[in-house]
């Protein structure tokens, strides 16, 4: 698995995958995609990078412990739900705001924030497991 070709291509591949995962996440509300799939893609990217460059490298690049990222995701999702409190509407009620940037109209919403939370929760959890297993592999 640890060939020169793989190691050379991996960083580029990982970068593309991460960008793609964000793209998938953001388009999710109207096109196929969403936080869950996006999170899975990003997690695969991290797993690939871990195999190619070593877990140590990945942990350094991530800055945060993956499980903390997962916790952050759940926190963000909860926060998205709690925002409705300020408008005196039930928990998790979707709130929408539209920004006009030039010709395009950008929709910001609590469901989007929620989906970002899902993204991080999935990404963090699976990356944590994958990295822990890979670490184990290396330590053998």
């Amino acid at each position: 698995m640890n060939t020169v070709i793989f190691r050379t291509i991996a960083p580029i591949l990982v970068a593309i995958m991460v960008v793609f995962s964000v793209f998938i996440l953001l388009r999710g509300h109207n096109e196929p995609g969403g936080g869950f799939i996006g999170g899975l893609i990003a997690a695969s990217a991290i797993a690939i990078y871990g195999i190619a460059a070593g877990v140590e490298e990945v942990r350094k690049a991530l800055k945060f412990d993956p499980i903390a990222i997962a916790g952050f995701g759940v926190f963000i999702a909860g926060l998205a739900g709690l925002l409705s409190y300020f408008y005196q509407v039930p928990f998790l009620t979707g709130l929408w705001a539209y920004l006009d940037i030039g010709p395009s109209k950008v929709a910001l919403s609590t469901p989007l924030l929620f989906d970002i939370g899902v993204y991080f929760a999935v990404l963090g959890t699976i990356a944590a497991i994958a990295l822990a297993l890979e670490e184990d592999e290396e330590g053998k």
Binding site: N30, E31, P32, G33, G34, D115, V118
Partner: peptide, 9 residues
């Protein structure tokens, strides 16, 4: 427009 995603989130 993505019903699946709307249901989920």
């Amino acid at each position: 427009r993505n019903i699946v995603n709307v249901i989920l989130v």
